[in-house]
Design a protein around this nucleic acid. Structure first.
Lengths: 235, 235
DNA sequence: CTAACTTGTAGTCAAAATGACTATAACTTA
DNA sequence: TAAGTTATAGTCATTTTGACTACAAGTTAG
């Protein structure tokens, strides 16, 4: 344990999307404190690794997941957030497509929970989750991070449902598809859904290269929720 | 020193705006390492204080500044970022109006530098600065943080110049004022500039209460840079 | 095998926002 | 009094939006 930093820890918010629901991956804690309780996957940092490396290692060890979108949220450092001793935690958040990264047997202690039905979480994990949700809601509008939560190939309806689940409001289907397709960031594939009980929808792929190129020209990704009519009572 | 966390530090990016330029406050380091070099104001965290409290204390002690907009950027934790020993730093960024918070004699070792003319910075402070600039550029478009950099009462031209300085591109004056005033977040004051060598402009104040109310209704603050024409060569 | 149902996808249309300008007002200084 | 600055109101064509309609393409129920 001498090779660990004892004043810092890492906790990961792992968001996934499946069946129209946004989900969070929790693990059942193996050790005290809060042993046996569902909590954010977390761990400590080795002296020999950067914090980003540590976050990837911890995630891999606890859940078997790797090569996923992983970014730092922020540090949480209330004095008494971790009862045993003073530890500041670095919160990371990951976005993954449930199908792209199925849970292996390796992660027997891990389970997906719909974000609307989370169990009580220990320490300040509830606050971390709330902050992560807020950040996700903000980011999905201004950055094309939503695609990380979908399979490589997806339909426009899946994309729309993802936005609806995260933003928590309904979107108009024709308008949503018009907006997204006109952005020229989705590549229509010569493929369609299979085994669906209705007309098969075309599959699309996100064009990351094109996005990067457009960004250099000053392009800004924006998916605004419908602005409700502004009541202009006085003036 | 036993009451300090020795594996963590705090470094602050302090942005200010004056005379059409975005500036960063640096201090000349009193102690080794990098003694005498210009660097981000920083320090260590007491066991008895939260990280947010620590950031405010450090800022006050080093610069005399208080009661300002201060938010966390993120943690920087490369293994060798701080040569003496392994320390992860929490970067914060502050936005202040140069006039609202003049430097007191208290902060003799502090000086404002235009962000375009920064001296070489020690450790990973350069990377922290770059990340902070990117975050500021992103945030000023989606959140009304720009007002933190202006005096309480400001003119529309000052606001526009602030956006131009941060985004690094020119904006059309009539269109900018139309966009901002139609948002209904600026309260026109019955006051005008004084002692200017031309027609005095009206002063405005940011209506934070109204902003908070609109946000609850789903309003989203957006100041998009002009989208250059999309070349649609093929298709 | 036709009808009912589901989802996909193309359009329409009025309203609002945007980008590019023009024009004029209000001051100061030469 | 004229020239120079900045403020501020408006115009206008174009684009984007929000709210819908219509129809296509499959599946399943009767």
């Amino acid at each position: 344990m001498a090779d660990m930093l004892d004043q810092l820890s890492i906790d990961c918010l792992i968001f996934g999307f499946g069946e129209g629901q946004l989900r969070l991956l929790l693990i059942s804690r193996e050790d005290a404190p809060a042993q046996g309780q569902w909590a954010l996957p977390g761990g400590f940092i080795l002296r020999s690794e950067s914090i980003d490396d540590a976050s990837r290692r911890i995630l891999r060890q606890l859940t078997g997941l790797q090569d996923l979108y992983l970014a730092q949220l922020r540090a949480f450092g209330a004095v008494d957030r971790y009862p045993p001793r003073r530890v500041v935690t670095l919160a990371y958040y990951a976005l993954i497509s449930a199908d792209r990264h199925p849970l292996t047997s390796h992660s027997a202690k891990a389970r997906w929970f719909p974000v609307t039905e989370l169990p009580a979480l220990p320490f300040d994990h509830e606050a971390i989750f709330q902050e992560g949700m807020a950040t996700l809601r903000r980011n999905i509008r201004h950055q094309p991070v939503g695609f990380e939560l979908l399979p490589e190939k997806f339909t426009l309806l899946q994309l729309q449902q993802l936005y609806e689940a995260i933003l928590g409001l309904p979107l108009d289907k024709p308008n949503f598809r018009r907006k997204l397709t006109r952005m020229d960031l989705l590549i229509p594939l010569p493929e369609y859904q299979r085994e669906v009980a209705h007309r098969a929808a075309r599959l699309y792929r996100f064009d990351k290269d094109r996005y990067d190129r457009l960004c250099e020209e000053g392009f800004v990704f924006e998916v605004a929720p419908p602005r409700r009519e502004r009541k202009t009572p006085d003036r």
